[in-house]
């Protein structure tokens, strides 16, 4: 059984994911986590001894080596077209070294 977590725990976790949670949202997660913990018990109860994790539905190879030839390129203008701030052909962010 998972240990019950509090609001502060989830707020700190969200910060690691680069976003904030309001008190109300963190509280919702605390409540939903209690339901999830009961559901996770159903998962943990399955005996998976000797079972390999399944990463993709099929294990037939679909990836092949190709010639190292340039294809499917986009222009610099296209690459930058969705950026909010562009300076001299680069994505622009606030100065890092001050």
């Amino acid at each position: 059984m998972e240990e019950i977590k509090d609001q502060a725990y989830f707020k700190a976790l969200a910060r690691k994911l680069m976003f904030e949670l309001t008190d109300e949202e963190a509280d919702d997660i605390v409540q939903e986590f209690k339901t999830l913990c009961v559901q996770l018990q159903l998962l943990e109860a399955i005996d998976t001894t000797g079972v390999e994790p399944m990463v993709y539905p099929f294990e037939t190879p679909t990836v092949y080596l190709r010639e190292d030839e340039e294809n499917h390129t986009i222009s610099q203008e296209e690459a930058l077209s969705n950026a909010s701030k562009v300076v001299q052909g680069h994505f622009s962010v606030p100065r890092v070294v001050k």
Partner: peptide
């Protein structure tokens, strides 16, 4: 291991 990988193992059993 106990959550994500367990879920992937259970996936194999379900399949």
């Amino acid at each position: 291991e106990k959550l994500f990988r367990q879920a992937q193992r259970v996936r194999r059993l379900i399949v």
